[in-house]
């Protein structure tokens, strides 16, 4: 079974889906408000949490940890 984007996002450290896959794959819309239209792109809205301080932000290329996706994985493994 190949894991879709939402499954990967919910995977735990061991790389297994957080919840045992039910017989019918979880509908992605479960993660979105009920009235989310089908067939349209939807980007989850960012909320402000912690931020890197400017020095680290300049290093990482963002001041928002949630948006810090280095292309190649750093030595510590998966970001």
């Amino acid at each position: 079974m190949d894991y879709g984007y939402f499954d990967i996002m919910q995977m735990n450290a061991a790389g297994m889906p957080a919840t045992e896959p039910k017989n019918k794959p979880q509908r992605p819309t479960d993660r979105f408000p009920a009235e989310t239209p089908l067939g349209m792109a939807y980007v989850p809205f960012q909320t402000m949490n912690t931020m890197y301080d400017p020095e680290e932000g300049l290093e990482r290329g963002t001041i928002y940890p949630e948006l810090d996706f280095p292309l190649q994985y750093t030595e510590e493994g998966m970001p």
Binding site: M48, P54, G57
Partner: peptide
């Protein structure tokens, strides 16, 4: 450079969250 970068990042965030007082303070 680092403050310019932080300001630019906040600019991007404030464009979609113009009333976020936290972001405005930063």
């Amino acid at each position: 450079k680092k403050y310019d970068f932080a300001l630019y990042e906040l600019n991007l965030y404030l464009d979609t969250h113009p009333h976020c007082s936290n972001a405005l303070a930063y």
